[in-house]
Design a protein around this nucleic acid. Structure first.
Lengths: 188, 188
DNA sequence: GGATCGAACTTTAGTGTTGAAGTCTTCAAG
DNA sequence: CTTGAAGACTTCAACACTAAAGTTCGATCC
């Protein structure tokens, strides 16, 4: 029972402590495995906190979480950092309509350009600008610094094990919930 | 660099495999620790997948992720399952305005009631109905079944360790990002 | 070579959220 | 008692997203 993760909004929710919450669940719902609940709750809570943190840092750079996602996707596509709106929408899990508007904004801010494909005038090509790429770089530096800091208390062994366990869980979810064609889907 | 978690929407994004993604990041960004990146990416991806799964199951019950959050919060408040809109908004991390509308809907669906406090007519009391409570119960059963299934490949030891590690990370985030008054904030 | 189908994107209508302004009640002064 | 100030919620305007309808270009068929 994880909270809605889509909220990387302004303020973090003010919630009871994890232990209090689990105790409350046990009170209201008899057959609850506290160990499972602890893992699931911590996972969700951690994620929400991290997203609030990312959102703040990105805001300092003058970009939104949504824009950051688009920049990331274009960079991951590799040189020459071009994708069509439809492809972007698919990779981001958005509708094409939402993509149109998001690209409008980002083109207005100079983060990307939007042009007709000369070879096929139905298609549109979205391309990262130099400014977009350097914003991505700045954001990436902030993100990796934050992530290093987050994991600083874990030994290298612990990090390795944690990564492996999470990937096992990810595989399990993808088995249970065949969404994305069976590939391990993105996360960062 | 986690994706925006607030999207528990309809379709999961179609992303490259985790390994492909990390390889691409290393190509574009030299000083990246693959181990850290793996943990962070898996964490975010897992969370998004889980939220899509929750969203689907809740949709089968006829409630949205947003409604589920409200039901959870009221149940966690304990008997008599009453809270004001302001308090609900705080616990859910929403603005009071959003809360007003959400309560409108849910009251219309019979999941909660909304009444003026007789002792202080400025205040409003939102109370879970029997229907709301039973929806919560159904959802809770589905959620816990899903969570058991998710963790089925992990031994009890592994679950315990995973929970502890996640809580350490949660503490670290809360140190770094003083949002919620220093308490371990909610997650499920 | 004109009609039809399909693909790729945009536009429109409806929903949900935020931030700011507004309303109503209570409490405290004068 | 009436004025002022604060608190709790609601309303309003703006924005972002979804689902569905619309537009435009390209390819295929006859």
């Amino acid at each position: 029972m994880s909270d809605n993760p889509e909220r990387s909004g302004p303020q973090a929710p003010q919630e009871p402590s994890l232990d209090e919450q689990i105790a409350a669940y046990q009170r209201e719902f008899r057959d609850l495995d506290p160990q499972v609940e602890k893992v699931v709750s911590a996972l969700g809570r951690l994620n929400r906190r991290m997203n609030v943190a990312y959102g703040r840092q990105l805001a300092d750079l003058g970009i939104s979480n949504a824009e950051w996602e688009v920049l990331k996707t274009l960079v991951l596509a590799g040189e020459p950092y071009r994708l069509g709106p439809g492809e972007l929408a698919k990779r981001l899990g958005l509708t094409p309509a939402a993509m149109t508007h998001r690209i409008d904004r980002m083109a207005g801010e100079g983060l990307v350009t939007r042009d007709r494909d000369e070879n096929n005038r139905v298609r549109v090509i979205v391309e990262l600008t130099d400014e977009g790429r350097s914003k991505w770089l700045e954001a990436m530096r902030m993100a990796t610094d934050f992530e290093e800091e987050l994991l600083q208390d874990l030994t290298s062994d612990e990090r390795g094990v944690l990564g492996e366990v999470l990937i096992r869980l990810l595989r399990r979810v993808e088995l249970t919930q065949p969404d994305a064609g069976g590939r391990l889907t993105d996360l960062d």
